[in-house]
């Protein structure tokens, strides 16, 4: 059907129709994906009483930053935000460093424990003790109710370890050998040579660990729900969501009931919830371009194993 004149082929009518339908479908998908995000963003910047009248819009009708200022007047949210930042920074740096160091030792072909240690880690991908025994362990180790429960249990993931090891195995062997001849120790080889050369894989894993840290709420829920000083932003948002869910079909949501602005009906629990949602999302959006750059690497590396 396509008659080739010089250069590009002409499109037939059927072809054109196909392209139009395809584009329309994809545009609809685009709208469906973005609408919930933009709607919540608009609600968070809209006057709360106006939102009550009609909440389906994409642009604030009566612009206000009151939802946010009310939110950050609440010391708890402010504090939770910093705990979230702290756990993300500390958790990511320690996890990436420890994973890389272990991966380096396991990438050394001459290391006698290379096989056993790799196996012991890979095994954990299949079997895990499950919720209750882990919960007991955390209690017995006195990690319950501490900040360290955010950092230590997730220090090394088997999957990340294998990905890093595969990457390091691909680096030229002569680098390590020549450094050894010069008398460098393994630790300094790791720190000065292997770590800088592994930057692509480290960036990928760091981003994924950081997103995981920022997004997690379940550990707070399980181990720190009674310790308000260690609450995280996601957990606070989760509590708001829960109280909203409990009151579906019931009367007003009770969250933030004590706030002056709520009592004066200037803000509503729904508008506050929208504002927290946005605050919890912004860091993800900020690192999103970097994520995009690296996650294809991550995916293809994910195919590498043992």
């Amino acid at each position: 059907m396509t008659t080739t004149t010089f250069g590009r082929p002409k499109r037939s009518a059927a072809d054109l129709l196909f392209d139009i339908c395809n584009t329309v479908f994809l545009l609809v998908l685009l709208v469906l994906t973005l609408y919930p995000v933009l709607n919540t963003l608009a609600v968070s910047f809209n006057q709360a009483q106006d939102t009550v009248r009609d909440s389906t819009f994409l642009w604030p009708r009566e612009f206000t930053t009151l939802n946010y200022s009310t939110l950050f007047q609440d010391g708890l949210i402010y504090h939770a935000f910093f705990i979230s930042v702290a756990r993300t920074l500390l958790g990511t740096v320690s996890s990436v460093f420890c994973t890389a160091m272990l991966a380096y030792t396991l990438s050394r072909k001459e290391y006698v424990l290379r096989g056993p240690i790799s196996f012991i880690f890979i095994f954990t991908m299949y079997f895990s003790g499950g919720l209750i025994p882990t919960y007991m362990l955390i209690k017995n180790l006195h990690l319950y109710g501490t900040f360290w429960v955010y950092v230590i249990p997730g220090l090394i993931g088997a999957f990340n370890l294998i990905v890093m090891r595969s990457f390091m195995e691909g680096l030229p062997e002569s680098l390590v050998e020549s450094a050894q001849i010069d008398g460098a120790t393994h630790f300094s080889i790791f720190l000065r040579i292997i770590l800088p050369l592994s930057l692509p894989v480290i960036a990928t894993i760091a981003l994924f660990v950081a997103v995981g840290q920022w997004n997690s709420w379940f550990d707070t829920f399980l181990y720190n729900s009674s310790n308000i000083n260690l609450s995280t932003l996601q957990y606070e948002l989760m509590k708001k969501l829960q109280s909203a869910n409990m009151s579906v079909g019931g009367t007003a949501e009770s969250a933030f009931a004590s706030s002056k602005n709520i009592q004066a009906n200037i803000v509503t629990p729904a508008s506050i919830r929208a504002a927290i949602t946005v605050v919890a999302t912004v860091p993800i959006i900020v690192v999103y371009p970097f994520l995009q750059k690296y996650f294809v690497t991550g995916l293809t590396l994910g195919g590498v194993k043992e």
């Binding site: 919540t40 609600v43 997004n215 996601q234 919890a280 999302t281 999103y288 994520l291």
Partner: peptide, 17 residues
């Protein structure tokens, strides 16, 4: 993009919709 949002955030968005 939604893959990188936490389920807490996603659940909030879904609930609003």
């Amino acid at each position: 993009l939604p893959h990188f949002l936490s389920w807490v955030v996603a659940a909030n968005l879904i609930m609003n919709v």
